[in-house]
Design a protein around this nucleic acid. Structure first.
Lengths: 255, 255
DNA sequence: CGTGATCTTGATGCTCATCAAGGCTAGTGG
DNA sequence: CCACTAGCCTTGATGAGCATCAAGATCACG
């Protein structure tokens, strides 16, 4: 009974990791075996726990964040099922579970990815993940630096929906939403009160619904339009204006 | 005459790169030869030019930034002499010169760094640079998410001073400051006008002087205190409060 | 000496933080 | 079964921080 449940969990974990990594590159037989090995070594952590490194999240949500000296917190990124979570240097960022989570021991996978000759598929997948992690950090900087609260919230919801959909955890409009408004505030650089008001404005505008644990994006395209959201998949084109400007500046006299 | 000046520039470029990379790991003879090779292949770009990838900046300032559809710009990071600048995917970030710059062809260095057995020193140095780049992005997120304009400005000036001092371009209090207030605004997520008022407030408070091309931090410690600046070198300790909180949350009942 | 880039200043109002309080829900213990 | 509690969401009032608009000053440079 218990073993059966364990086996079921491992199978689901393996599927999830395969979906995440396989979406980025072709995986070989040995790659899949490494994944199955990781999926058999699961560990659970309660909400609030600090997560160890060298693991892959297979269920639940986590985040990377920093706590400032005055007690304020800033969340750098959300970690979703399928994402690797490396424990970072203390003081730079800590990885914390936001819900109860399960993680798989990914030491073997990380090691395999080091060897791009033996495990080219794994190496490529993790390289793509690294690159995307940086992309997400840059997107977050744009959210904080150049968007209003309303835009930030729309942009974050669209990002989370897209990332969750990739591993089969969201559809075109609906996504699980286990985050408290306090957590959203810590991520978006806002106060709790203002997050609440922003969410309600989005609700009143008919753009989202947000009930216990579930978010519904009623009109994803309108949301994307209002905040300038760009899909993670489709590479963005340079805007013509930016190209012209760069050219004219490049033609400026040398110093 | 001309060759002599070129040789002098190459020598200074080699010294700069050596100082930057050597500060992070021990460099071997072959490492140094690769550096000298890069320093001989210099290229100049005017302010405003978009920079090619696979290069190392040896003089002048650049930045990584994105231009939004409404024309607003967000600067992600400043690139200073000694920093590698990789051309990124269009739309995610572009690398642009903020002053006239010189770059060295670092293809050989990057390639050497790939081989951690043959060139352990180089590999270690570039790994450290990557890690620090991420640290700087996280610091930038904290600036934008949780600091006032006054704090952001102080924090950025302290960061720039420290990075420049490392390659011999700043002392304890003084650093070159070629950035316009518009550029500072694009980095700090503020309007030009507010950057101006913030700078003046810092001046009136006796904390900084800012004349054409030079910034003086009259009291770096007071600046660091007011914005919670943490040196890039000294690893930060976790605050005791954060530890206690994590422990108590971890002890919460399982879901 | 004119021209464009940069810096500066004032006036006005929106965005968002803060303070304070009340409501809702789920879990807890009497 | 019903207070009781704790966490989370919600609402109102007030003000600080910052954006925006508009205009002038200063500087660098051809």
């Amino acid at each position: 009974m218990i073993t059966e449940r364990l086996a079921g969990r491992a199978a689901r974990a393996g599927e999830l990791i395969t979906r995440r990594l396989g979406g980025l590159s072709g995986l070989s037989g040995p790659d899949l075996e490494l994944i199955q090995g990781a999926a058999r070594r699961l560990e659970s952590s309660p909400a609030g726990a600090e997560l160890p490194g060298q693991r892959i999240l297979v269920s639940g949500w986590a985040c990377r964040r920093r706590t400032l000296t005055d007690g304020a917190r800033q969340i750098f990124s959300f970690l979703l099922p399928g994402d690797p979570c490396e424990g970072r240097r203390r003081g730079v960022a800590t990885v914390a579970a936001l819900t109860a989570v399960e993680t798989a021991d990914a030491a073997g996978l990380f090691q395999g990815a080091e060897d791009s000759l033996m495990q080219p598929g794994l190496a490529e997948a993790f390289a793509a993940i690294r690159e995307e992690e940086e992309r997400l950090l840059l997107d977050h900087i744009v959210r904080l630096g150049r968007m209003t609260a309303y835009e930030r919230m729309a942009h974050l919801l669209l990002e989370l929906r897209e990332r969750l959909a990739r591993v089969g955890l969201a559809d075109e409009q609906r996504l699980p939403m286990p985050l408290t408004q306090e957590t959203l505030a810590d991520a978006l650089g806002l106060s709790i009160v203002h997050v609440n008001r922003t969410v309600q404005q989005l609700r009143r505008d008919g753009l989202i619904e947000l009930r216990s644990g579930l978010a519904v994006l009623n009109d994803p395209e309108a949301l994307a339009e209002l905040c300038g959201y760009e899909s993670l998949r489709a590479p963005r084109r340079a805007s013509p204006a930016a190209g012209v400007e760069a050219a004219s500046r490049a033609a400026a006299p040398l110093s």
